[in-house]
Computed example of a mutant assay.
Amino acid sequence: MQLLRLAVSTLSAALVVALVGAAPAQAAPPPLPVPYTFLTSAVIAGLAVNADPPGANDFSCKPSSKHPNPVVLVHGLSGNKATNWQTYAPLLRNEGYCVFALTYGQQSQLPAPYNQVFGGFTKMELSAAQLKTFVAKVRKATGAAKVDIVGHSEGTVVPNYYAKFLGGGAFIDKYVSIAPLWKGTNPAGLATLSTLGTPFGLTPALGRALEPYFASGPQLLTGSSFMNKMRSGGTPKVKGIRYTNIVTRYDELVLPYTSGIEAGMTNHVVQDFCAIDYAEHFQIVADPVAAALVLNALDPAHPRAVPCRLVLPFVGGL
């Protein structure tokens, strides 16, 4: 009888193992689509007010051992978390990163949620404080000690104010800047006009009237008090952060484009990798060359080839 019970028990266990083994493995979720055109993706994304970009802001996401740092995406002037990151949010999520994005610098004159449509307009000190709060939220949710930053345009400056002046340097590991302006910009000679003492050379009254709507604009100009503060000590760099810059020769807003090239940082020019890539200030955030360089900067232990194909301004590949 005891032998019979043992045999039945063994057979039952074997049957369970067989059934479990025969059960089909749960299929991995399909990869998210990754568009490589800026204009159409941004316009479509802008129709959904305050939406998250695909693959971002899953606060239940736990970083893997391969990618232990969550990636925080920081948009550029007039962008928001969705319009700016239709390429990078799904790309990074497909690569196994926990990805997060915020909209900062909202104009208070607009009611919620419509104040989320365009960001980056308030003083960058205030935007950096918003980023500080957001990074703390991401770190708490994920349990990560540090985050990696991927920023575009104004979003390459705001995180560094957080790092240099608001204690963020202790919480940032890798810092990847797309179309950065470490030395400011001088589009249409506006920085030169601002040397007259008022933003863009306007009268004092007009300068004061402009500030509530576009406080960050004068701060981004070469020679502004904000930029001079960012370069205090002779460099914007913060010790312990690994910086990578990705610039395009066809940048129409960061002038000269070499403002994004900084000594002591890793610097890449898109056209050094692909001469037929005409990405400018906006298309660079949906550019295949820049995308490969970002992935390599975030995971230098597993570099990948940088592609080269025709890329047109704003619309990307044909």
Rank of each mutant, 00 (worst) to 15 (best):
L210S: 07
P212E: 08
F214I: 14
S216G: 13
P218N: 11
Q219R: 14
L221N: 13
T222N: 12
T222W: 09
G223N: 08
S224E: 13
S224K: 14
F226G: 11
F226I: 09
M227I: 15
M227Q: 14
T235S: 14
P236A: 07
P236E: 03
G240T: 07
R242Y: 14
R242M: 14
Y243P: 01
Y243R: 00
T244A: 06
N245Q: 03
V247W: 02
R249C: 02
R249Y: 01
Y250A: 02
Y250N: 01
L253V: 11
L253K: 11
Y257N: 04
S259T: 08
A263F: 01
M265A: 02
M265F: 03
V269M: 01
Q271H: 12
D272S: 10
F273H: 15
C274G: 07
I276R: 07
D277R: 05
D277F: 04
Y278Q: 05
H281T: 06
H281W: 08
H281C: 09
F282K: 00
Q283W: 04
D287E: 11
V289P: 00
A290F: 06
A291Y: 11
A291F: 10
A292R: 04
L293H: 12
V294E: 12
V294T: 14
L295C: 13
A297D: 01
L298A: 08
H302M: 00
R304M: 05
V306L: 10
V306R: 10
L310E: 06
V311G: 00
P313I: 08
F314P: 04
F314M: 14
V315T: 10
G316L: 03
G316R: 03
